[in-house]
Structure formats: structure tokens, C-alpha cells
């Protein structure tokens, strides 16, 4: 279980997160929605320790995320980055098997390659992609490689940062379905941030809306349409009129 308690983060005068409280049950899929620049990515990066929060606590299975063995902590996570964040200089299979080629999870090179090819196949890519460089792939294929990398070491917790941004609707649907399937299959805890409502409906068990640095609403995805929250209502229907200013 991931629990954020009173987490705050400011960059200079800009208070991005103000007292964020959020709980993600083990094995569930939480999707955080909210407009651009509302602190969704910062919240996710705070959990991983990529950004240090100013106040509050982040607990993963009861343990403070900032304390203890950092490598062991990070080994529990997989992450799909918005732009893929694939290493340009390494072939696709090496990107996927990166974690399996060093550190505590190190495997022999051939075994790591086999696992990488199997994971590529799992996300719908053929083995001949394995030896290409990321720059030779389309945006959708790069996203799939990023997904394969995120699940390569079979992590307990997977984060998805805007998984469908920049993809056409069909490819976005494919990625959404893959994420849902993989998360269910692996029994992983998932935390996704997005402002794509089709992703939310495909991926989420629960939804949290982050606005102005605080969680405005949280609840099961089935309750989202009848949340009664003016912010959620405006956001999910994409209305310009409402409590959320259109120009931020």
C-alpha cells in the first residue's frame, strides 16, 4: 500500500503540492487526474524520491519511502515515462533488460536478452525489434518498449506517467488495454497520472483528482460520473466553464 500523508512541495513561491493525502491499496490501480501543471508528475516523483518533498510522509507498505535501502526500495518499482525515456545509445533489448544486467537482479547476458524479448512479445512487439535503436521506432512502439522495460523485473508497483500522450486514439487504446491486462496479470499496484479520460476509464479502479495542489475528490471509477464534485464534473466533461480556470 502507498500512503501519502500531508505531502507538500514548493518550487520557490510556487506551491505545487499542498497537504496531499492519498492512499493506494495493494494490487489496485489508482489514476490521478488533473489539468496540466497541477502537480500530478511531482506527486509521482515524490513517491519515487526523484523529487524531495518539503513536508509530510510517504509510506510504502508502512515504511518511510525516504529511509532504508534505496536500491531495494526502487527495485520494487517499474515506471513508464511520458516520453518513453529510452536510452538512445542502447538497443531496444538492452533498454528492456537494463535492470536485469546490473545490481541485485543481475542475470547472465543471454538470459536477460531472452527475458527482454519475451517482454517485448508481451507488449505486442516482434523479436526483430530487439536489436534496433529507440530512434528507429515510432512513438507507439517506443511507448511499448517503455512498458516492457517497466515490467521486465516484474515489479510490485508500476507507475505510468501520461501513458497515452502523443499517441493516436487507436494506439492509445492498445496501450490502455495492455496496461490493464498487465497490471491485472501481475497483481501489481499501479499509479497512473493522465488527463486522458479514455485512459482513466480503461485503467482505473479508483480515481483521484488533483487540483491546485490538493486532492479535490477521490473514489471508485464507477462513481466518477456521479461524483457531485464541480471540479471533477468540469474536468471529465472537458467544459471551459466551471470552478477550474481555463487559463492557468
Amino acid at each position: 500500500m502507498i500512503r501519502m500523508e500531508g505531502v507538500t512541495k514548493a518550487f520557490g513561491d510556487n506551491r505545487v503540492l499542498r497537504d496531499v493525502d492519498l492512499e493506494i491499496e495493494k494490487g489496485s490501480s489508482m489514476v490521478i487526474i488533473g489539468g496540466s501543471g497541477t502537480g500530478k508528475s511531482v506527486a509521482l516523483k515524490c513517491v519515487l524520491g526523484l523529487v524531495r518533498h518539503d513536508a509530510g510522509r510517504i509510506l510504502v507498505d508502512g515504511q518511510d519511502a525516504g529511509k532504508g535501502d534505496r536500491d531495494a526500495f526502487l527495485a520494487r518499482f517499474g515506471m513508464l515515462f511520458q516520453g518513453g525515456a529510452l536510452f538512445d545509445s542502447l538497443p531496444v533489448w538492452h533498454n528492456v533488460a537494463f535492470r536485469l544486467m546490473r545490481g541485485a537482479l543481475k542475470r547472465p547476458r543471454e538470459e536477460a536478452r531472452e527475458i527482454a524479448i519475451e517482454k517485448l512479445r508481451r507488449v505486442g512487439l516482434k523479436p526483430d525489434v530487439a536489436d534496433r535503436l529507440p530512434a528507429e521506432l515510432s512513438g507507439g512502439m517506443q511507448k511499448r518498449v517503455g512498458l516492457a522495460r517497466a515490467i521486465a523485473a516484474e515489479p510490485e508497483i508500476i507507475f505510468f506517467d501520461e501513458p497515452t500522450t502523443g499517441l493516436d486514439p487507436i494506439m492509445a487504446g492498445v496501450i490502455n488495454d495492455l496496461i490493464r491486462e498487465i497490471v491485472t496479470e501481475m497483481g501489481a499496484t499501479a499509479m497512473t497520472i493522465t488527463h486522458d479520460m479514455s485512459s482513466v476509464r480503461a485503467i482505473a479502479d479508483r480515481v483521484a483528482m488533483l487540483h491546485d495542489g490538493v486532492i479535490q475528490w477521490t473514489g471508485p471509477v464507477g462513481d466518477m460520473d456521479a461524483s457531485g464534485d464541480a471540479y471533477v464534473d468540469q474536468f471529465i466533461h472537458g467544459r471551459a466553464e466551471g470552478p477550474i480556470a481555463a487559463v492557468r
Binding site: L48, L74, F81, Q82, F87, D88, F98
Partner: peptide
């Protein structure tokens, strides 16, 4: 710098490197 801008450095950290 390009690796940083494209979040490859963050990716390294999440991969325990």
C-alpha cells in the same frame, strides 16, 4: 543534458542505477 531533458536520468534512477 539531453538525457536529463528527456527524463533518461530519472529513468536511470528508477532502474536503481
Amino acid at each position: 543534458a539531453t538525457m536529463k531533458v528527456t527524463e533518461q536520468i530519472d529513468a536511470l534512477v528508477t532502474l536503481s542505477t
